[in-house]
Design a protein around this nucleic acid. Structure first.
Lengths: 252, 252
DNA sequence: GCAACTGTTCCACAATGCGGAACAAATGCC
DNA sequence: GGCATTTGTTCCGCATTGTGGAACAGTTGC
């Protein structure tokens, strides 16, 4: 009940800035606070980094601190923009398509993909949902979900997508355990003949999975048996980097 | 110099929450503040919406207000995630691919695309950069850039991408003027033969362009001459909606 | 059951934030 | 150019406001 006035006012100032940058007087007007009070609040907000004053001139705008905080507040909401450069790195390294997906019920929704531009390539699943149990991303996302969520997903029977799809719940549970232990998952022609993929989990700062990074390619060339471990490591490392940045860290 | 103590402490509390949700006691420990002070600050932060207390239990996490503020702080940083559902709506309506791009020098960088899934479709340019003067998104982005930026972009000569590309600076300037007046741009087989596209601008709260929404398709069926106006309106309306949400508004 | 935790509330004290007013520095206007 | 009106910044006495110890009230777990 007893609220801290200065904090309320500070946020009132921040809100007033969200419609656009302004100077002290204008902010004072928008917030109906005395100029001197606004000036004081602004100076502390600048110290903190919640507000930035545009170089030389004296107009104020919202600052980086808020972005960092919001990244921690809604982890995953910006997972696409954060992932993209890292997906690009993966593609450059492995020369196969890389993507990022999130859990959608018992499926994986593919948010984004970076194309390797090979002559023979898989069709782009961005924006579509695929049953989780037949793709590596899906296995990763299920494996690292909470026990309740996992139980809910395992409650109903699974459908096969092709000949080699695994649908036996017991087999799937055993598999999820090993995925959880390993920190990654491979699927070999389980969604469709001729398609293999690896995936690794992206976590938010609290340790919950929020997405999965994957690389996939045509089975006749992916994975190159000599590079399989290297590929796995690259995907796991990329997912770990994205996790870090999703958590608000600024280093790449 | 003279900083407002309670505001500093409030942000100290917020920062301590960015590593993960916690209860009053733990936050007090992390921030080295008295418990009662933390409890008071938390209660006001909850009022404001900068902090949310998890239902029933008494642990606190960062709240929605921070996301809204950061959306205004770094407009465009989350343009992809905001755009996606609206792109999907466009695709559902028009049955052609829709995407979002941003300015990158004198080019357009395609951030994201939603596929209509037609049998005949254009290749996906997501993650690539295309010269701004040959695509509708590019024209829109140039048209609504600041005068200095526009002048800089017009300083060097333009290269043709195909037969119908327009490269004459005077013609381009005239065109940009009409785009600015209309609020949208069409390009007809100017990037490549057989490809047409429309685009409309996305603005941040200060009124600067931060991106463009486009729809494109094969020239033999897009745009349907009878629906051309309807298509244009749909794209313009979608871009306006995205602008609104980018600015922090919560209504769809 | 007590013990060791939680989070919440109270209240006397004064430190802290307040805001009017006076100042300084741009900008605008004839 | 100089006068006028705006801007942002600083000062300082006043009291409102925030402070934090301590006492209280729920939880959890030996």
């Amino acid at each position: 009940m007893s609220a801290v006035q200065s904090v309320q006012r500070a946020f009132s100032v921040l809100r007033s800035l969200s419609v656009g940058p302004a100077g002290v007087s204008e902010i004072a007007e928008r917030t109906e606070l005395p100029k001197s009070t606004v000036a004081r609040l602004l100076s502390t907000l600048v110290d903190i980094g919640a507000v930035e004053q545009s170089d030389s001139a004296s107009t104020y705008g919202l600052g980086e601190t808020l972005v960092e905080l919001s990244a921690a507040a809604a982890p995953g909401r910006n997972i696409v923009s954060i992932s993209r450069p890292h997906l690009q790195d993966l593609v450059d390294l492995l020369e196969e398509d890389a993507g990022v997906g999130v859990l959608d019920g018992r499926g994986v929704y593919y948010l984004d993909q970076v194309n390797a531009g090979q002559e023979v390539q898989l069709r782009d699943w961005t924006g579509e949902t695929v049953d989780a149990h037949v793709v590596s991303s899906g296995l990763v996302l299920m494996a690292f979900s909470s026990d309740e969520e996992q139980a809910a997903m395992l409650a109903d029977p699974f459908s096969p997508w092709c000949e080699r799809s695994i649908t036996d719940p017991v087999a799937i549970i055993r598999r999820l355990e090993s995925v959880r232990r390993d920190g990654f998952a491979w699927t070999m022609e389980e969604m469709a003949e001729g398609i293999n993929s690896v995936a690794a989990p992206v976590f938010d700062p609290t340790g919950s999975v929020i997405g999965a990074i994957h690389v996939h390619g045509p089975a006749y060339r992916f994975p190159d048996p000599d590079r399989r471990d290297a590929i796995t490591r690259a995907v796991v490392r990329t997912a770990a980097r994205v996790s870090k940045r999703v958590a608000g860290s600024l280093e790449p």
